[in-house]
Structure formats: C-alpha cells, structure tokens
C-alpha cells in the first residue's frame, strides 16, 4: 500500500536521474543569464548590491523602471564611430579614442578570426600527420601535443612575455646575431595577443581535426591514387571535404572563447590592445558599474549566439550520425 503510494508520488528513477544534472544546469547556468539581462536595465548605485532595483514598491503602487542608458552608451558610440568614418575632420585615432566599446568589440572579433585561421593553418598539417602515423607513434605525438595544454594556461601566457619583451629571448638572439640594432616592439601589440591566443588555443583545433582525420578510410586514398589523382587533388577533393566536421568544430572551439578572452589581452596586450572582455572586467571591477558590465555581456552574447547555436546543431548532427 505505502509502497505503491510512494511509487505514484515519487518521481521515477529515470526522471530523477535526468533531474539531477538538469536542475544544476538550469539553476547555475541558465537562470543567471536572466539576472544579467535584468541588471543590464538598472543603474549603478552606492549600495549593497551596487545597483538600483528595477521594481520599487511605494504604498500600493508598484513601479518597474527599465533603464536603457547602458545600451545607448554602446549604441551611441557605434553611431558616432560610423559617422566619424565619413568625417574628414576626425582622425582614425580620435574616432577610436571616442568609441572604446566599439573598438573593443572590433578588436576581439578581428583578432579572434586571425587566431582561428592561424590555428587552422598550423593545426591541420599537425593533426593530419599525427593521424597518418602508425598507432604507437600516433599516441606519443598526441601526448606531446597535450602536455603543454595540461600545464597552466596562465604560465603559458607568461612564457610569451619573456620571449617577446624588448629585452626578451627573441630580441636578445636577434641583437647578438647583429640582425637588428634596436629591439623590436613585439609585446603589447596585436601581434603578441594573436600569438598568445594561437599558442593557447592550438590543442582545441588539433583535437577535433585529429579525431575526424583518424577515422578516414585509408582505402579512399589508395583508390584515388589508383585512379590517377595527384596528391594535391586527393587532398583537396577527398581529405579536405571529409574533414569538414573537424574543421568546423575546431574553428568554433577556438573562435567563440577567443572573442570573450580576457587574460591574454590583459597580459600580452598591456592596455594597448583591449578586448571587450577587458572592458567588461573594468566596468565590473575598477568602475563598479555592474549594469554597464551586464549590458556589455548581453551585447557580446547577442553577437555570439548565432555561432554558438550553429556549433551546437552541428555537434548534435555529428552525434546522431555516430550512432
């Protein structure tokens, strides 16, 4: 009697198993986005927490105030930037100075794209050669790719400061060889930020590429060779189209997080190359303007939602195909 009642009222084992991770993700990952959206319509306040409430209650009237000034800050900058492009009076430097959010979004997207292309160019041949090696070598090579990835990310970024700075490794070597007289300016430039990102995101490109390339049937290449295809033709007509899944997965795994990068531009960009993540952290930390930080995050998410959904759909299709 009691047992059957319990069976009716308690969720079934299946539902319980689904609910455990589902509720965790809904509560700690999905729900917080609504708070970001909510607080992006507030104003900063010297209080605890440091923003104004949206809903105020006075006697019997409840007022909801949605303040959109944080979004107009970003939007107005965008408009001003656009107009200054056609205005011969304002220089490029002035336009950039006055539109810091727009420049930060632009920097992030542009340098993330460069990073994505460079990791693809470097990662593809590496992944290809690892996949074609025999099994024992393959395992060792894959491990060699992974070891740097397992060491601290921050320490890997720090390593590049020592290499690129004016009295760093590269400049020391070039100057002692007499190739240059004065040290090259490499640190705190877009170049140093991109090289740091390529270095750190390379495994994210190599692994998905490797896992598609290793599954390719070797008989395809033999067939192509038998039919008289050159190596170049085989690569462009067979290998490349068949590894499309790995290319897309790798590119998205690099591009999306790279747009939101904070640590690399902070350490290797040194205030000269500012990403939108750095603006967000400044608003959050130094300026204590949480609503502005929230609005910046909402706009960033709006820019990234299309690639994120595309990546997810694509992964789903791959998973289904694998079954």
């Amino acid at each position: 009697m009691i047992k059957s009642l319990l069976h009716r009222w308690l969720p079934s084992g299946r539902t319980g198993v689904i609910a455990l991770p589902y509720f965790w993700l809904l509560f700690f990952f999905a729900l917080p986005f609504f708070f970001v959206l909510k607080i992006s319509f507030a104003q900063p306040d010297i209080a605890q927490p440091p923003y104004t409430p949206l809903v105020t209650q006075e006697e019997n009237t409840t007022t909801i105030v949605l303040d959109t000034t944080k979004y107009s800050t970003i939007l107005d900058e965008g408009k001003a930037f656009y107009h200054s492009l056609f205005d011969p009076e304002t220089t490029w430097e002035q336009a950039k100075e006055e539109s810091q959010y727009v420049v930060a979004y632009g920097n992030a997207i542009k340098l993330a794209l460069y990073t994505m292309l460079l990791t693809l160019l470097i990662g593809y041949p590496l992944a290809y050669n690892i996949a074609r090696a025999n099994e024992a070598t393959r395992n060792t090579l894959l491990m060699l790719v992974m070891i740097p990835f397992w060491t601290s990310f921050l320490l890997r970024v720090y390593a590049w400061i020592g290499i690129l700075k004016p009295n760093g490794v590269i400049n020391n070597v070039l100057m002692s060889m007499g190739l240059i007289d004065a040290p090259l300016e490499m640190l705190y430039t877009p170049f140093s930020v991109v090289i740091g990102m390529v270095y750190n995101y390379l495994p994210f490109m190599i692994l998905p590429l490797y896992s598609t390339l290793v599954k390719l049937d070797g008989r395809l290449f033999e067939a192509a060779a038998d039919l008289g295809a050159s190596k170049v033709t085989t690569f462009f007509r067979i290998t490349l189209p068949l590894s499309k899944a790995g290319i897309i997965a790798g590119c998205m795994m690099v591009f999306i997080p790279a747009v939101g990068e904070y640590v690399i531009p902070a350490l290797l960009g040194g205030g000269d190359v500012v990403f939108i993540g750095n603006k967000l952290m400044d608003d959050f930390g130094a300026n204590l303007d949480w609503p502005q930080a929230a609005a910046v995050a909402v706009v960033m998410l709006a820019l990234l939602i299309a690639p994120i959904i595309w990546f997810h759909r694509f992964e789903q299709k791959q998973q289904e195909a694998a079954q």
Binding site: M253, P257, G260, G277, F284, A297, M300
Partner: peptide, 10 residues
C-alpha cells in the same frame, strides 16, 4: 564554448 567573462558575471 561560452566566454568565461559572461559565465562568471552571470
């Protein structure tokens, strides 16, 4: 893939 600055802030 979600940028960590967004996850952290939210």
């Amino acid at each position: 893939v979600m940028p960590e600055v967004i996850v952290g802030l939210s």
